[in-house]
Design a protein around this nucleic acid. Structure first.
Lengths: 219, 219
DNA sequence: GGTAGCCTCCCGTATTTGGGGGATAGGTTT
DNA sequence: AAACCTATCCCCCAAATACGGGAGGCTACC
C-alpha cells in the first residue's frame, strides 16, 4: 500500500452522520483522539447533514449507511450533488455487498466497518483524503466486474461474420444504408443483404432494435 | 479484511508468466515455498502462455504486465476470452495506474507489486481465489469513478419535452412507431410528430441515429 | 387577451427499410 | 468433389419511415 501524503498540514475536519446518540458520541471521541483529526460536528440525520454540512465545509464526512427516513446512501448522493469534491466514507455495521455497492454508485469514496480499529480508521481516512478508495477486496471485485461490463465495447453473443459486424457498427453510429455502402465501398443492396442476415442472427426486425441490442450488450 | 476460505482443499495450481529467467526462477521458488501452492509451469512469453495454459488448467495465473511482443494485458484479455473463469493476477514492478487500469479492463482479477512480501503474496492469491480483487485503494478509486460514470443512465443535453423523452426511450428499446403508439396510448401519427420534433432538436435524420446518440450519451 | 409551447391528430409524398427470392465467386471444411 | 460459409450484387414489393404542411385544444406566462 502506497503512503498517501496527508491532504492538509493542519487538522482534518470531520463531520459524522449517525442517528444513534451513543454511537455518535463514541465515534466523535474516537475521531478526536486521533492526532490530526477533529470531529467538528455530529449530524443526527440525513436531513440534518444536508442542512449543515454545506456550510461547515468539512474535509471528510463519515456517514452511517443506515439512517432513519433518508438513508445514508441517498444523503450521500445529495451531498455529492451539492459538494462534488467532498470526501465521504460510509460506515456500516454489516458488510452487505449490495448496500456498499449502492453507496459507491451514489458517490461514496470508500467505506469501512464500524468495528474498525482506531489505527485502521485513521489509515482509511488518510487514504480517502489522499485519493484512495478504501474498501475490501470483495467489494473491489464487484466494482471491477461492474466496471468491466460497462467499459467493454458491446459484445455480441451472436456469431456475426467480420463484414456483418462492420455493418452493425456503422449501423449503431446511425448511418443509413446508403452511407454504410459508401464507407465500405460496396453496393446498397449488399448492405441490405448483410442487414438481412444480421437481423436474422440477432432476432430483431429493425435497425433501431439492432442498435439498441448492440449498444446495451444484450445482442 | 474478511477471511476467504481456500478455493480448494488440495494444492492451488499456479502458472507464472514472466519473460526474465531470473525473476521467473525466484518467483517459482517463492510460490512453491508457500504451503498449499505449487507453481506448475513458468511461461516465458504471452504467446507461450496462450499455448499451454488452456491445457494446464491452473487455478491461478500470475502474469507479468511487461512482456516482449504481446503485453501481459493483451495476453490476459485473450486468456480470459478462452477461459473466463481463470483467475489472473497481474504482477508489476512499478505502480502505474494506467497500466493496472488497462489490465483490469482486460479482465485481470487483481494485481500486486513485485516487491510484495511472501505472506502478502499468499494473502493476495487466496483473496483472488476467494472472489476478491486485490488492489491498492488508489486503483480502487479510479475503478470506482470509472464505474460510477458508466453506470449512470444516458443524459440528454437537448431540451426534449417529457413526452418526447418518453418516445425517445421507447425508440431506444427498438420499438416501432406502432408499438410506441400503443404503449403511450396515442396515435401513430402523434408518434410521428414527436419523432419529427425529436429529430429536429437532436439534429439527426433517422431513428437509428437518434438511438445511437441517445445511448452514447452524446445526444 | 395575446403569445407561446406542448400534445394531439391528420394529409400527402418521397424515401428508406424489411424481407422474400436468387446469382456468382472465393474460400474452407469434409 | 461436394457441401458450406461468406461476400458481393441483383430484383421486387409491401410496409415503415422521414418530413413538409396544417390544425384544434390545453396550459402557462406575460
Amino acid at each position: 500500500m502506497k503512503n498517501h501524503p496527508p491532504a492538509a498540514i493542519q487538522t482534518v475536519k470531520v463531520v459524522l452522520v449517525e442517528d444513534k446518540p451513543g454511537v455518535r458520541d463514541s465515534w466523535t471521541k474516537l475521531i478526536n483522539s486521533l492526532p490530526g483529526f477533529a470531529c467538528m460536528h455530529g449530524c443526527v440525520s440525513g436531513e440534518d447533514a444536508l442542512k449543515v454540512i454545506p456550510s461547515l465545509k468539512p474535509d471528510l464526512v463519515l456517514m452511517d449507511i443506515f439512517l432513519p427516513r433518508m438513508s445514508g446512501i441517498e444523503c450521500t448522493a445529495r451531498l455529492k450533488l451539492a459538494m462534488p469534491k467532498l470526501q465521504i466514507l460510509m460506515l456500516t455495521a454489516v458488510e452487505d455487498d449490495e448496500l456498499v455497492f449502492m453507496a459507491l454508485q451514489a458517490g461514496a469514496d470508500g467505506y469501512l466497518l464500524k468495528r474498525t480499529k482506531p489505527e485502521d480508521l485513521r489509515a482509511a481516512m488518510l487514504d480517502v483524503l489522499g485519493g484512495g478508495a478504501p474498501m475490501t477486496s470483495e467489494i473491489a471485485r464487484r466494482v471491477v466486474e461492474s466496471f468491466r461490463r460497462a467499459s467493454q465495447q458491446p459484445k455480441l453473443d451472436v456469431r456475426l461474420s467480420a463484414r456483418e459486424e462492420e455493418v452493425l457498427i456503422l449501423l449503431s453510429k446511425g448511418y443509413a444504408n446508403k452511407e454504410i455502402a459508401e464507407q465500405l465501398a460496396i453496393g446498397t443492396e449488399t448492405v441490405g443483404s448483410h442487414l438481412k442476415h444480421i437481423y436474422e442472427k440477432m432476432h430483431v426486425r429493425s435497425r433501431a432494435e439492432a442498435v439498441a441490442r448492440y449498444m446495451t450488450g444484450k445482442a
